[in-house]
Simulated assay, not measured.
Amino acid sequence: MGILLRWLGAFVLLSLTFNPTRWNYVTWVQENFSSQMALSVFLGLILGVAYMVYVVATLRSIGAFGIILVAAIFGAGLWVLHDWGLLSLENRNLNLWIGILALSLILGIGLSWSILRQKLSGQASVDEIEG
């Protein structure tokens, strides 16, 4: 359940930042920056901190190679679905949602990787302390 919540958190974060509807931070700032500058900056900083948590945890847990590997697996899955005729990539909005899904899966896996590895291997992960 915790892994699902971490992925859902990443999906919500990415969707709040940008999505193909008009209900997202980027569109709201474009329309309201001059009248709501302080709130725009405040919300942008909150989003920035949330991204920092997800991105740093992902880079520390699975690294750049892991990010590329998860993205490649997701891309290959899309290729299979497209090749079988189950997915058409001509709809721009659908493509954006698929991109949000892919990025949220990468961030969710990155944030949950130590939990997954512990459950699969039975070994706990600990941070290395440099001294």
Rank of each mutant, 00 (worst) to 15 (best):
T27H: 10
L86Y: 13
Y54W: 11
E90F: 09
S125W: 14
F65T: 14
A38Q: 09
F42K: 00
N91M: 06
E130N: 02
I3Q: 11
S34R: 09
S61N: 15
E128S: 09
W84M: 10
W97C: 12
I73F: 06
L5E: 03
G9R: 07
G99P: 01
G75Q: 01
I98F: 12
G85T: 04
Q30S: 09
Y51C: 06
N32L: 00
G63T: 10
S61A: 15
L89Q: 04
N91E: 08
L5F: 11
Y54D: 05
D83P: 00
H82S: 13
N95M: 14
Y51P: 05
F65E: 12
D83C: 00
L5W: 09
I115K: 07
V56F: 11
A124L: 11
S61Q: 13
D83G: 02
L86K: 09
W28C: 01
F18Q: 07
W84L: 09
D83N: 00
S125I: 15
L120D: 02
W28I: 00
S88C: 05
Q118M: 06
L45T: 09
V12D: 01
L39I: 13
Y25T: 03
E128G: 04
A10Q: 02
L107E: 03
M1T: 15
A71E: 05
A64L: 15
L101W: 10
V12P: 04
L89F: 06
S15M: 01
L78W: 01
L107Y: 08
A57I: 05
V80T: 05
L86C: 06
S35R: 05
A71Q: 05
E90H: 13
